[in-house]
Design a protein around this nucleic acid. Structure first.
Length: 422
RNA sequence: GGAGAGAUGCCGGAGUGGUUGAACGGGGCGGUCUCGAAAACCGUUGUAUCCGUAAGGGUACCCAGGGUUCGAAUCCCUGUCUCUCCGCCA
């Protein structure tokens, strides 16, 4: 959520910047500002009324002590009157306050100045490419390989649950476990503190990181308990610090977490969802950082470099995209996507998304820190996938298939798998 | 799932209707003393929001949300969480 004070002081700037996200904020901003103005007016009235009430209440207490009962009764009446008035003022106050935040919450985060203009994924800016993307003939897509080698059974998964919930078998199951450990160990070396958090969160948490109210149709909802299956570990991990005021010396906070992720992916279809390309449940290791505002863009670079190092260790060809205004998420100020080239399908697959949310999430969740002068400020939150497993596996299978129909395991993973070929 | 107890500031812990934003102790910060430090002593120490250029002032907040009352941390209702006992259980 954009900070109200900031919007109040820079309404034109906000409107201008949100155009990059193809969002026409003009009407919203006008409404917010007028609601906010009303709110403040009523708040002043209400506060003055309360002040008067408090004064009278104290006097009544005093009069009672002195035994001046009838005088107290007169004051009581006056207090009751004030209370009646307060009720009306309060109604107006609450109405405007609610309207302010309910409208404010609809505004997406202000994009960083480097975010390119654009309508869709087509307009993302490719900032870096590395690795060999030449295709040799007869490379199979991973779903064929999985069937041939009995590695993943999509049909049993569909029988157990539904489509998009595959069953991993034998060496594939072990490979997954190996990759998770490989990612976690690397993150630990990088200084991230590992956390294991719940896979279901309450409404408040989902709201704080911005999944609600924006993307509620993308989450599985356990209605009976009003809980949500996490679409990413970002949600529980960032929410650890919800409503906290951290000390300057605690920063930056660096966490990594493995979790299963659940996404309804409503409305997707076609070859995009074939095989491992898009699942309802998948595994991911996530990295999360919480930093002082002035450090967050350096941190974003650092996280980018880290994800790059992982892809190099996995020997996968990859590229980095700077998401354009049309493709960047509601909550993000700047996002880099990492895509690996999967030779069997001959297409790029997104395996990581590294974002700086600046204070957008922090403002929602009241995540602040106290500087050395004792002043509190909102923090910046960042996160990135490091990495999401299914498409990594798809690329490993497709790119590392040998002419004998085996799959070569990259060297860095071999200590974790215990085998070098599938 | 059943029965009971509880939730107070950075921490411990008082407070059961009237100058209580909150005693007392600890911690933190500032100061006096000291060459320096410790000890001792003095002072200070929450968040949000509103008015104000500022100084300053108002309001709200003692788990959350409602209610009673002129007035609530204190009484009532609902919810959440924690602890103890019983049941069940990886």
């Amino acid at each position: 959520m954009i900070h109200l004070n900031f919007l109040r002081e820079n309404p034109d700037y906000v409107i201008e910047r949100l155009k990059i996200k193809n969002f026409d904020a003009y009407e919203y901003v006008q409404h917010i500002l007028s609601y906010d103005k009303q709110r403040r007016k009523f708040q002043k009235q209400l506060d003055d009324n309360f002040a008067e009430q408090n004064k009278i209440a104290k006097e009544i207490g005093k009069l009672y002590k002195e035994g001046k009962k009838s005088e107290a009764e007169t004051l009581k009446e006056k207090a009751s009157q004030l209370k009646e008035e307060a009720k009306k003022i309060e109604e107006n106050f609450t109405l405007n306050e609610k309207a302010t935040t309910e409208t404010l919450i609809l505004l997406p985060n202000i994009p960083h100045e480097s975010v390119p203009q654009g309508k869709s994924a087509e307009d993302n800016e490719i900032v870096f490419t590395e690795g060999d993307t030449t295709i040799s003939p007869n490379l199979l897509p991973h779903w064929d390989l999985c069937e041939k080698l009995s590695l993943i059974d999509f049909e049993i998964g569909a029988k157990l649950t539904g489509s998009g919930f595959p069953v991993y078998i034998g060496k594939m199951a072990k490979l997954q476990r190996a990759i998770i450990n490989f990612f976690l160990d690397n993150a630990l070396t990088e200084g991230y503190i590992e956390v294991q958090t719940p896979y279901v969160v309450n409404e408040e948490s989902a709201y704080a990181t911005g999944q609600l109210p924006d993307k509620d149709s993308q989450m599985y909802h356990v209605e009976k308990d009003n809980l949500f299956l996490i679409p990413t570990a970002e949600v529980p991990v960032t929410n650890i610090y919800r409503n906290n005021i951290l000390k300057a010396e605690e920063l930056p906070i660096k966490h990594c977490a493995y979790s299963a992720c659940f996404r309804r992916e409503a409305g997707s279809y076609g070859k995009d969802v074939r095989g491992l390309n898009r699942l309802h449940q998948f595994d991911k290791v996530e990295i999360v950082q919480i930093t002082k505002p002035e450090d967050s863009y350096d941190t974003l670079e650092e996280m980018k470099t880290y994800v790059t190092s992982l892809l190099r260790k996995l020997e996968l060809p990859f590229r980095i995209l700077r998401l354009c205004g049309g493709d960047i998420s509601f909550t993000s100020a700047l996002t880099f996507d990492f895509e690996v080239f999967s030779k069997g399908q001959q297409r790029w697959l997104e395996v990581s998304s590294v974002s700086n949310f600046e204070n957008f999430q922090a403002n929602r969740m009241k995540l602040r820190y106290k500087d050395n002068n004792g002043k509190t400020h909102l923090l910046h939150t960042l996160n990135g996938s490091a990495l999401a497993l299914p498409r990594i596996i798809a690329a490993l299978l497709e790119n590392n298939q040998t002419t004998e129909g085996k799959i070569h395991i990259p060297k860095s993973l071999q200590p974790y798998t215990g085998f070098d070929y599938i």
